[in-house]
């Protein structure tokens, strides 16, 4: 009984099991990655010097960012109108649109990538359509384009959901007010709706970009040696070369890039809210 009373006074006690599990199953392993990147095979910065002195590694590093940037842009272009439409249709249609987003969201990434392998392979559906139209066969699988196509489809739900969450809260009377004062639709969109939806754009873009940086399955199955990304490289170092130090260093570089991006995004969002005079 005394335990229960102390829980009532200190609700933080209820979070202890979760925090403990997190420390054991995530904190300690991450510490090991960092430790090994500096100590394996000998103490020092060797692994990091090795990483940044090899052009191959730097190519993969930049490619990882480039692919994520393309995927983020494509997701935004495809997701923005879709999320807007979700706010403009009736409840039944909206449910259908949500379902279209949620089903792929929860269908395993491996299975969805399998579908893309079938579609994009050299004798696949897409190439047969292209050839039937009289064009040259395209190399899609084991290329960067293939990876971008697959990743965009897998990550699109992560863009649409935050966009929709923000757009749902936008007061459309503000847009109507602008138009009643003579603003043309394009202007009222650019000056009113777009700035109001910016938190959603930013939130979605950050999530998609970060998840894109760490993507493993899709690049591994759809990309070839010429489309390797950082995750695959790190995995090869550990599982194939048994080089924990180098693999760990790559992991740390990936993790630090992710955290830096998040920090920048968090700062940027806060400033925006201040400019907008938001109360939240």
């Amino acid at each position: 009984m005394r335990d229960l009373i102390s829980i009532r006074r200190n609700p933080v006690l209820l979070t202890v099991p979760a925090v403990l599990l997190l420390l054991v199953a995530l904190g300690y392993p991450l510490a090991q990655v960092v430790l090994r990147s500096f100590t394996d095979p000998q103490p020092g910065l060797d692994n990091y010097i090795w990483f940044f002195s090899r052009p191959v590694n730097l190519t993969v590093f930049w490619r990882t960012f480039e692919v994520s940037a393309w995927v983020t842009l494509l997701c935004l272009i495809l997701g923005y109108p879709y999320a807007w439409m979700m706010t403009a249709v009736g409840p039944r249609m909206r449910m259908l649109m949500i379902l279209c987003v949620l089903v792929p969201f929860w269908v395993s990434g491996v299975v969805r990538t399998l579908a893309w392998v079938i579609l994009l392979q050299d004798s696949g559906v897409i190439n047969r359509v292209i050839m039937a139209l009289g064009f040259e066969k395209l190399r899609l699988i084991r290329t960067q384009t293939g990876v971008i196509i697959g990743m965009t489809q897998v990550l699109l739900p992560f863009m649409i959901m935050p966009l929709y969450a923000v757009m749902r809260g936008i007061d459309l009377r503000l847009v109507q007010a602008a138009q009643s004062l003579g603003a043309r639709p394009a202007l009222s969109f650019l000056q009113i709706y777009l700035p109001l939806s910016l938190p959603g754009i930013l939130g979605g873009a950050v999530i998609v970009f970060i998840l894109g940086l760490g993507f493993y399955i899709t690049p591994a199955l759809l990309g070839g040696p010429r489309a390797t990304m950082l995750s695959t490289l790190a995995q090869q170092q550990v599982l194939q070369q048994l080089n924990w130090g180098r693999g760990g260093a790559m992991g740390v570089i990936l993790l630090v890039s992710t955290l830096l991006l998040l920090a920048v995004a968090a700062r940027f969002t806060r400033r925006r809210y201040q400019i907008a005079g938001g109360s939240k």
Partner: peptide, 18 residues
């Protein structure tokens, strides 16, 4: 507690494997 959602999968996997 939400950090597992943002840590890149491979980084976790390497550490957990170790």
């Amino acid at each position: 507690l939400i950090t597992p959602m943002i840590v890149p999968g491979v980084v976790m996997a390497i550490g957990i494997y170790a």
